[in-house]
């Protein structure tokens, strides 16, 4: 392997990581407060989770296609890629956070109310701390999935390791495909392991 290829792998890996980090950052910034707001609103919750479910079923390549002609969030480049990736990352984070908050043992919540805690105190002191492992699990699932899906971002000029993969496909050159696929797979495995470790560390019980 020559050094030019090595440095290109490194550069595209970093670009890939950047796409993933921005995506997860935005998705978490929307989904976490969203979960807190939706936890007490059953009806709205069904609508929002339903919408996120539908977004999840759109094939990623098709979604990129849909976004291309749109103003502001569309067009060629990173921004469109990040918008699409966010739509995919939202659901696992939102759903896992909700599962964590709503999954708190009913007797624990009942005694919190009966002891005279306010709804706000119950949320911050009881429900959210107990939901942390589930929230981290959602972040883990979203991160691993985004690392994979982000390779498709190259199709619309989003950059990242997908550049190798699409180049390799058009040149019918397997080593070039692998130069993108292997680092992406390694990145996904490392993210999975790392976040699983954090998840275990934060489990209260």
């Amino acid at each position: 392997m020559n050094s030019r290829l090595a440095s290109e792998i490194l550069a595209l890996s970093l670009e890939h990581l950047e796409l993933v980090a921005i995506t997860i950052g935005i998705a978490a910034a929307v989904a976490l407060p969203g979960a807190v707001l939706l936890a007490r609103r059953a009806r709205t919750r069904r609508w929002v989770v339903g919408f996120a479910n539908i977004a999840q079923t759109i094939p990623s390549l098709a979604l990129f296609g849909f976004l291309l002609p749109l103003p502001l969030i569309g067009g060629i480049g990173k921004r469109t890629a990040i918008v699409a990736l966010c739509l995919y990352a939202l659901l696992p984070i939102l759903r896992n956070s909700l599962v964590g908050i709503l999954g708190v043992d009913a007797t624990v919540r009942e005694s919190a109310v009966a002891m005279g805690m306010t709804q706000r105190q119950i949320l911050w002191q009881v429900e959210l701390p107990l939901a942390v492992p589930s929230i981290v699990a959602g972040l883990r699932i979203a991160t691993v999935a985004t690392i994979g899906t982000a390779t498709i971002a190259a199709a619309i000029g989003g950059g990242g390791l997908g550049v190798f993969i699409f180049r390799g496909i058009s040149m019918v050159d397997t080593p070039t495909v692998l130069a993108g696929a292997i680092p992406a797979a390694v990145m996904a495995l490392l993210a999975d392991e790392g976040l699983e470790w954090i998840e275990r560390r934060l489990s209260p019980a």
Binding site: V108, S111, A112, V126, P204
Partner: peptide
């Protein structure tokens, strides 16, 4: 009955 202690 089962105390309802806060597990964390």
């Amino acid at each position: 009955q089962d105390a309802g202690l806060f597990p964390h």
